[in-house]
Amino acid sequence: MTQHTIGTREEWFAARLELLEAEKALTRRGDELARQRQALPRVRIDKDYRFETEAGPASLADLFDGRSQLLVYHFMFGPDYSAGCPSCSSTADGFDPIVVHLAHHDVTLMAASRAPLARLLAYRRRMGWRFPWASSHDSDFNADFSIWFTEAQQRAGDVEYNYRHEPVFEWRPDAEVGGLTAEARIAAMCGTHVPTFHRDRPGMSAFVLEDGVVYHTYSAYARGLDDLWSMYQWLDRAPMGRNEHGVWWRRHDEYSDG
């Protein structure tokens, strides 16, 4: 167990002021990074991506739902999954409260996954969510935005994720918990095995619609999504921090006292 200093209120206050300066510097750096994101070159989208939505077949432009900005969360839910990724599910638990605010600020927030629409909507009902969710099942969308890869790509070491090249797929050396690696436990929670689970990846992408033309402006993956996973923003401020030993989180309806 980590040993922590026990001090007086005066000592705490002095240390807190020192930390405050570091936090302010991080906030200012975050503001600058946001400006850099918004200044990235925009890439015109000419491919006709097709989606299935509750309103019927849709193009990428249709997903904007009358607004000029679109934020898509690439939710890990492949056609071979029996349930959505529990990590993505934890992230998505924070979507509903902000969807309405973003909508009134000219931004549509939605999820997109490769699983058929009926399975996505059934899972959404189970989770009690309301945010819009589109199926990209018959589209190149996931492949083109580097969040889905084929078995052939895995075997050939031809996977580019999070802006870097990955080696030929191997089981990661996670610490074993309950006889399974952390990855294997999460894959099992989705009703699949690690290689299949790993062909879908998490991410988010941003788009803007101008004069009827869609432009891609930004995408983030892996730890680049940490700020969107609100659970961790709270844990980082808790006395013990993330304090993780393997996979501890569940879907919100799977905790024993849920």
Rank of each mutant, 00 (worst) to 15 (best):
A238W: 10
L225H: 07
R201N: 04
D106S: 11
T196E: 14
V72P: 03
L109Y: 07
M240D: 14
M189N: 07
R44F: 04
P195Y: 08
Q154H: 15
G178L: 02
A111G: 13
L26M: 10
E244P: 01
C88M: 06
S146K: 13
L17S: 08
F75Y: 14
W12C: 05
V99D: 06
W133V: 00
I186P: 03
E170N: 13
L117W: 08
S256C: 09
R37K: 13
P239G: 10
G84I: 00
A122W: 01
N162Q: 11
P167D: 10
A187T: 02
A206D: 04
D174E: 13
A175N: 14
P41Y: 07
T2A: 13
G94K: 03
F207C: 05
A122V: 00
L109C: 07
V177D: 12
L102D: 04
F145Y: 15
A156Y: 10
V168R: 15
T150Y: 04
Y49R: 11
M231S: 11
G78S: 15
Y161E: 11
A34T: 05
E244L: 11
I98M: 10
E244S: 12
G224S: 09
R50D: 06
F131I: 01
E244R: 15
S219H: 05
R119M: 10
N243T: 08
R199A: 04
W229G: 03
P79S: 15
V247P: 11
L228C: 09
V168Y: 06
M127V: 04
G66N: 09
R44C: 04
G78K: 06
Q36T: 11
F51V: 04
R199F: 03
V247S: 13
H137Y: 09
G94D: 12
S82I: 00
F169A: 14
R130M: 02
A112S: 15
F75G: 02
A156E: 15
F141V: 02
T5E: 10
A112E: 04
Y163I: 01
A14L: 10
F13T: 00
S135T: 01
S135K: 02
T196R: 13
A188N: 09
Q69D: 06
R199T: 04
I45Y: 05
T53L: 04
Y215S: 12
E183H: 11
H4R: 14
E23C: 02
